[in-house]
Amino acid sequence: MAEEAERQHLFSYLEHRFGISRKHFADYLLLRKRRTWFLLRDTAFISSAVRLKPVQAGLRAFQQVGGFVKPTTRFIQTFGRFADRSRVQIDLVRLQALLRGEKIHVDLPLHNGYVILVIGKGHVLGLGLYVNGRISSQLPRKEIRDAMLS
């Protein structure tokens, strides 16, 4: 189990950066394994699960990347819809550019950091990294096939 201070730190970050209220995580446990945090639904059966020597538990939610903690793509795809800031709407053309390794220019009143990439009618793709007016992709390139972009 992650320590309460870690939980507070991570969910405060989500609230501050993206406006995702920590109330959305009230029913979940935050687990930590080395440099990775997992979100698992809290339930009366958890103690049973622990006795069974789990290999994996819940959804991988955060990953330590250097000195930073990055929310995972799958975590953001699930909870990103609750965000009311640091969201960037892109289209297929800009997505293709990002996935080619290009940086796209945006004009946002933001501090540098992660942004949520949204396509179409609110479909959350994952994260980009916003630095000094440009966004680079943090999407898992191997999982997005070229055929998906046509």
Binding site: Y28, L39, L40, R41, T43, A49, L52, K53, P54, V55, Q56, A57, G58, L59, R60, R74, Q77, T78
Partner: peptide
């Protein structure tokens, strides 16, 4: 992960 499952533990 892709389907957003958060109530599963793998053994």
């Amino acid at each position: 992960a892709r389907t957003g499952v958060m109530n599963a533990v793998v053994t």
